[in-house]
Amino acid sequence: MTSDNTAHDAPVLPGGPTAEDAPLPSDAVEPPPRRWGELVLALATTALGVYVLVAAGSITVPGSSNTLGPRAFPYLVGGMLVAAGVVLVVLILSGRAGQEEGGEDVDPTVRTDWLTVVLLVVILVVHVFAINTVGWPFAAALLFGGAAVVLGARPWWRAALAGLVLGLVIQVVFGGLLGLSLPAGPLLEGVPFLRG
């Protein structure tokens, strides 16, 4: 179950490392901080597995089933998670880290920009809560405009305008014409062709 004896025949997958992009073993020069993040992820996998195993015991088994009940598969899945997590922890501690995904939009030399990650997540969460308060079109404008600005769109008002237009067009086509229940929001309450 080590990663090296399968590496030569297993293909490279999306989300998987791209071996040819980095022909030299870069693990050796990898700065140590990244190992911590990986270790945390592997430990989280193990912890989830333990949780699944414990929680599976509290699933109600109705009637008297003499065959496989609703708990059998959760036990199996919990076991798999724990096994995979433990193996990963051992691998990481022995110095075999995973490789992160490459991509042509990704600059491998840039350090992770955590601010962008946090801002994108915040915008998405605000979008979720905006849907029912200001209506879908404006929530959409917020999401599109906000995300574009965070990702580097300038000037900001052009992104906001594009988002608003996009949101309204989608609202008219999918809400008004196709009858999807997209809430138009209090501002556009009276406009009949926007209603789902």
């Binding site: 080590t2 297993a10 490279v12 998987g16 490392p17 798999m80 997590g85």
Partner: peptide
């Protein structure tokens, strides 16, 4: 993928 334990962790998740 190339790392079997990572693949299995992903599958189990």
């Amino acid at each position: 993928g190339s790392s079997v334990p990572r693949g299995l962790a992903s599958l189990s998740l």
